[in-house]
Amino acid sequence: MVSPAVALIGVFIFVPMVLTIWLSFHQWSTQTGFEAARFVGLRNYEDILGPISVGRDFKRAFLNTAIYTALSVVAILPLSVIFGLLVYQSRVAGGQFLRTILFSTYMVPMIAVALVWSKLYSPSEGPLNQILFWVGIGPQSWLSSPDTALYSIVILNVWQQVGYFTVLAIAGLTQIPSSLHEAARIDGANPVQEFFGVTLPLLRRTLLFSAVIAVINAVQVFEPVALITQGGPANSTNVLTFHIRRVGIERAQGGLGSAMAVMLMLSLIVVIVLIFSLARQKEERA
């Protein structure tokens, strides 16, 4: 009964995962068979962590991905809670409508999001600089300057993803027993105290889950970079998924690309373990 699923996931996920690790210790062209791989020990790792251009590019891509991921998570989580409260608590009309609008952006292909935002960001014909002009702010260079390009992609990512996390937050909010809210109010808590004393602590599991998913989604950023910026300007948007594919598939340096993929996997494990242990610490203190 489980064999079709186990066979498929085994062959198409676990086998390539083991191969990625194995290849990371080999020099191997992606255009040749696996048997052509030549063992080189840790040299791929020395290269990608070293001072030559391979290393510089990888470290830059790693840093860019880390910044992109951190900013995305830091923006998405609070927004999802605020929007979630708006939808969940408001007896006013429009709550459900807001949820529909927010979530629908998550359903849209990232490629379309990237294309549309590249036009929104257009310095002269784009509407964003026009709106900024109306409120008295000068034109921004958005995707065309190395100082702002990565942040611009963070914004479009937050726009696309926040609806999904809002629905997660609403799901978390519905599981908080209303008796706890009533008890807080009887004790004379104002809405702010109620939020920090009752709502937020009880949302911790939801936020933990959201943080992990947001990290995993963020490291997968690819379409806006591949299509719009090509990693530029000046490497400022070169992120890992784009970089690993460029090295491992387009330049066919399968060994190097695999070593980078292993580094990504290890870093993800570290980050996820950190998020969980942080949450556990807080739980013990509470």
Binding site: V6, V15, P16, M17, L19, T20, I216, L268
Partner: peptide, 24 residues
């Protein structure tokens, strides 16, 4: 154990297996 191992793949970004998977 099998269930946990399978579920863990939910957290694996596709890029990690992309290069060998393409070759396979």
């Amino acid at each position: 154990l099998l269930f946990a191992v399978l579920i863990s793949t939910m957290f694996l970004p596709p890029i990690v297996v992309l290069i060998p998977l393409f070759r396979m």
